[in-house]
Structures are given as structure tokens and as C-alpha cells.
Simulated assay, not measured.
Amino acid sequence: MTLASSLAAGLSLAELRGATLAEVDAAAALQHRVDRKYLVPLDRARRLIAALADSHHVLDLGGRRTTSYLSTYFDTERLGAWRAHVQGRRRRWKVRTRLYVEDGLCRVEVKTKDGRGATVKHALKVPTADYGELTTQAADFVDEVLEQAGIPITAKELSASAEVRYVRAALADLDHGSRVTLDGTLSCHCDDRTAALDPGHVLIETKGGAQPAPADRLLLGMGVRSVSLSKYIVGQSLLTPGLPDNDVRRLARAHFTTEAHPAPLTERIPAA
């Protein structure tokens, strides 16, 4: 069983109604949104999915209900993106290339926070061979987005700093435009070290407007509280020597394990 099929089975995704990518994009493609994140045991994640079954559909891609993601993050030599997040600066940013493995799709993505605290994401489709790099086209795109957001960083100051890998399932309320994503088999890789989320947990993100969505209210009723958690920030906090201690690292230590060797190539490129 592949990592993707294992997550789909663990979350009982086969019991949900499916929706096509076009349907999900039409109803819930929120590029300007508020994200709330939760670290949730698998049994509570299954309860959440069952409770959302009447209102939400699961993204179904020709019978496949999960997607394997590879994301290479870019940062400055002094980890400016990491520090902006940990220090709670109003103007935060992330730059990454993302590969949707089974679909053979690659994008350059730039995420920023606007003055109201909402996440704004910009994306540029690029050839799959460009994954993990900022080509001239990608660098021009990054520079334009960061400049418009008032962030004084340019692509020439950035280099690849970590890779994050996970498998994702996506749910959408087609009537009201909110989304829920569930990420499992999550790991971060930096040089020869790996930090991995406990396989008995998933990272859930709700993506919607300023008011809590039904998924947020259900999780609250289960006793689950939201956390301020970024996959990239967690990875750097746990794997990069010399970084100052912080709340992210203390939270991550309860749910992540670290190893001092790289993941095998078969884990890096999941089977289609």
C-alpha cells in the first residue's frame, strides 16, 4: 500500500461524495483567505470527516482522493522568512516550488500576509523539471509579488533551504466556499536530517473567511484547539542548529521525531 492510499484508507475517504477539481475550484478556490490549523489524532480526524459528510465533498481525481506533495522552500542566508514568522512580524512571506507528484504539475508559489492578517497566495505554473529551482522566469515572478507586498527581498537573495513532503486530502463545501485539507505522512528534510510528524496524527487546515467554518466549530467541540504551525517553520526549528528556541519548536517536539539521515529516494518520489 502506498503512502497516499494508506492515508485515504485511514481517513475513510471512500465514504464521502466526490467532486472534480473544476467543481472545487469554482466553489472554493480561495486565494485570499484565513487559515486555521490543528494537529489532530487520526480517530478524531475520521470523526470530523463523518460529521462533514452531508455538507462537504472530497476532491476526487479520477478515483484518487489524495495527492502527494513535494515543496522546496527558499529563504535568505539568515533565514529571513523563518525569522519573520517566529518573531510574529506583520509582513510575513514564503517562497517555494511545489510538485504535485501524481499529476506531474509544478508551480512556483509566493505566500504573504496582508495588513489584516489574511494569507494571500500567488502561483505560477512552471515545467516539472524546474522543481526545486528558481529559474529566470520564476525569479521575475517572485520579485514582482514580493515588491507588490512591500517586502524588501529579491529572488537573488534566496536559496533552497528545506524540502517538505506529505500526502493531502481536500474537502470542500461546494455551497459555501470553505475548504478543509488533511495532511498525513508529513516530513521535513534539511541536509542530512529529517523531522517527521507522528503517523498517528494529521495536520488539518481550514481555509475560509474571517468567521470560523463548520469544521472549526466541530473541532472545538472535540476539544481540539488551533495551533500556529507552519510546516517549513517547524522543519527549520527542529533541524537547523543554532536557531533560538521558540514556541513552534516546543510544540513540535511533542508531535515530531527527528533523524540524522536522509529519507530514501523511494519516499521522495511516491508511486503514482
Rank of each mutant, 00 (worst) to 15 (best):
R44G: 00
T128H: 00
A129I: 02
R89Y: 02
A81I: 08
R78N: 14
G80C: 05
V86E: 03
L39N: 03
T154C: 07
V120Q: 13
R165L: 14
L59M: 14
Y69L: 04
I49V: 15
I49Q: 06
E102H: 06
V164Q: 06
L79V: 07
S55K: 08
G80A: 15
V164M: 08
V110R: 01
L124H: 04
A155N: 07
Q87T: 11
I151W: 01
R44M: 00
R165H: 15
T66I: 03
S71T: 10
H176W: 08
G80R: 09
R78D: 15
C106M: 13
E109S: 02
R116A: 13
A53T: 10
K156Y: 04
H176K: 13
T136A: 12
A149H: 09
D114V: 10
A84Q: 12
A162P: 07
V86F: 03
A149I: 07
T154E: 10
R165S: 14
E133R: 15
A129T: 05
S55N: 13
H57F: 10
V86R: 01
D140K: 08
S178Y: 12
Y166M: 00
D43L: 02
Q148W: 03
S178E: 15
K111N: 12
V58I: 13
A50W: 13
G150H: 13
P127K: 12
A155I: 08
A170T: 15
D75I: 06
V110F: 05
A170L: 14
